[in-house]
Design a protein around this nucleic acid. Structure first.
Lengths: 249, 249
DNA sequence: CGTTTCTTTGACAAAATTCAAGGTTTGTGG
DNA sequence: CCACAAACCTTGAATTTTGTCAAAGAAACG
C-alpha cells in the first residue's frame, strides 16, 4: 500500500509541511477552505509526526481528543471484540481520517495501527470544532467525512452479508485500485502493505482462503501477485466478478 | 418489533405532540437541551406523520433534506446493491434517527421502509444546522448519533466477518432485547416486526437458516418463538453463545 | 373464503474452514 | 555480510457449515 512506488520520498519528514503546499490538500478536510481560512486551519494542526510499522496511532479505549489525517503511508483500523479477537475494520490511505468513530464519544472504540512507516497530521478536535463555528465549509467537510465512512461501512456490510469469498476479494482489489487512482497513483498496480491475515480479517475469510483466491485469480489471468506486489491485469473481468454474484438471499 | 405489546396505543396520532411531553425526549436528539431551547427545537420539527406498513419514509437516491426520528413503530433500512438485491442494513426503533447516512451527501444512499404502522418526526436539516450554531449541545447530540451508527456498523461488520450463523442470531436477539430495554420495555419478550427474510438479509444468512436457528434455540430452551412473538428464556445462555465463538480467523 | 405471502422442514450440494506441513521472506544480531 | 529465528505465505486433504431446491403447512389479507 506504499502509495509511492519507491517508498517515502513523496513527503519529507516533518519540516516544510503546510496545508497550502500539501499535495493532499484537495482531498483533505480543509479542501473546501479559502486561502486565508486555510492559514487558520494550518495553525491548529500538529505537524506531521512519524510512526513506524506496527506503531499505534490510536489505542482502543483511550480518551478521544484528536482526529488524525494520514499524510503518507497506511494504517489498519482494528477492534478487539468480546472474544479477544483482533478484527480489521478499515484500511486507511493518505487523506483518510482516523478517529471519526470516536467523534461523539469520550473514548476511541477502535485502534489504528501503522502498516508501514507513515506520517499523520493531528487535528485537536476542540480547536477543529471552534474553527467549524467560523467556517461552515469545514464543518460540512467533517460531516462528509463521517457519512463517507458510514457509506463505506454500509457497503462493507452488504459485501459481507451476501458475497462469496471470491467476490469479496475482487471487490477489495478494485476498491484499493480506485482509492489509489483517486489519490493520483496507478490503479493497475500497487503494493499491499497488509498481510494476508489482515486481508482475511477484513474480508471475513480465513487467511488460507485469501491465499487461494489470489492464486486462483492469478491463474485465471485477472491479476498478478508476487508477495505483496499486485498488478490488476483485467479490471473489467474483476468488475464482472463483483456484479455477477450468487443469485439467492 | 411493536414496542408496545398491544400495538399503537402509546402515542396518539398527530396532535398534542411536543418534545417536552414526549416520552422519548430523554433518548432523542434534543435530549440534552434546556427547557427553553427545546421550545425552539420544537418549532423547527414537522409534527409526527403516519406511515403504513411497507411505506417508504426515505427513498434511495432521493435528495437529502431532512432527518427523521422514529416516534413509534419500526423501520428497516435497506440498500439496493449493484446486483439489484435488497439488503437490510438496519432496524430502527423509536428514538432512532433515519437519514444520518446522507448527512454529508446530496442524496440518500439507502431507503427506509416502515415495518408496521409508524409515526416519525421530521427534522429539516437546514433548520437543524442553524439551531446547532446556537445550541452546541444539539450539535453534540448529532455527532453522537452519527458515531453511534458508526459503532453499530462496526460491530455488525465484526459479527458478519467472524461469527457463525448461530452467534449472529443470538447477537441479534440480545441486541433487540437491549434496545427494547433501553426504551423502557421488557427485555424478555417482544414482537418481531420483520419477516424471516428481513432477518436473514440483515444477518447475512438464508431465510431458511433463520428459521432453523430459531427452531434449534427453542428446542434447547433458550427462547420461545411462535410466529413473530419472541420470549428470551435464558439470556445468560444466549450471551454465552455470543462470546463463545469459533476459535479461528 | 380463497389467495397470497410467509414459514417450516428435509435432502442434497457447494463453499469455505480447519488442520497440517513445507516453503519463503523479513529482520536481527553476531 | 551471513546465519538464524520469527513471521508470513502456500498448498493439500478432510470436515463442517450453510446454502439451494423443493414441497407442504400456517398465517395474513382482502
Amino acid at each position: 500500500m506504499t502509495h509511492h512506488p519507491s517508498g517515502q520520498t513523496a513527503i519529507p519528514p516533518g519540516q516544510a509541511t503546510h496545508c497550502e503546499g500539501c499535495s493532499l490538500s484537495a482531498h483533505c478536510l480543509p479542501g473546501g477552505l479559502a486561502r486565508d481560512q486555510m492559514t487558520d486551519f494550518d495553525a491548529i494542526i500538529h505537524r506531521p509526526r512519524p510512526l513506524r510499522r506496527g506503531a499505534r496511532l490510536v489505542r482502543q479505549g483511550a480518551p478521544f481528543t484528536s482526529l488524525y489525517v494520514v499524510r503518507s503511508g497506511s494504517f489498519k483500523q482494528v477492534v478487539v471484540d468480546a472474544a479477544h479477537r483482533e478484527l480489521v475494520t478499515h484500511f486507511l490511505l493518505p487523506s483518510d481520517v482516523a478517529g471519526l468513530d470516536a467523534l461523539g464519544e469520550a473514548r476511541h472504540p477502535s485502534s489504528v495501527v501503522a502498516l508501514e512507516s507513515s506520517f499523520v497530521c493531528e487535528l485537536p478536535f476542540g480547536s477543529l470544532e471552534a474553527l467549524g463555528d467560523r467556517f461552515p465549509a469545514l464543518r460540512g467537510a467533517l460531516y462528509r467525512s463521517m457519512s463517507q465512512v458510514l457509506e463505506r461501512d454500509q457497503g462493507m456490510n452488504c459485501l459481507l452479508s451476501c458475497a462469496s469469498a471470491e467476490t469479496r476479494m475482487a471487490s477489495f482489489l478494485l476498491d484499493m485500485s480506485e482509492r489509489f487512482a483517486a489519490r493520483g497513483y496507478s490503479p493497475h498496480g500497487f503494493q499491499l502493505a497488509m498481510s494476508r491475515a489482515d486481508i482475511g480479517s477484513f474480508l471475513g475469510v480465513a487467511l488460507e482462503t485469501v491465499s487461494r483466491l489470489l492464486g486462483r485469480l492469478q491463474r485465471q489471468g485477472l491479476i498478478s501477485v508476487e508477495g505483496r506486489t499486485l498488478v490488476l491485469r483485467d479490471i473489467p473481468a474483476l468488475e464482472a466478478r463483483v456484479s455477477g454474484t450468487r443469485p439467492g438471499r
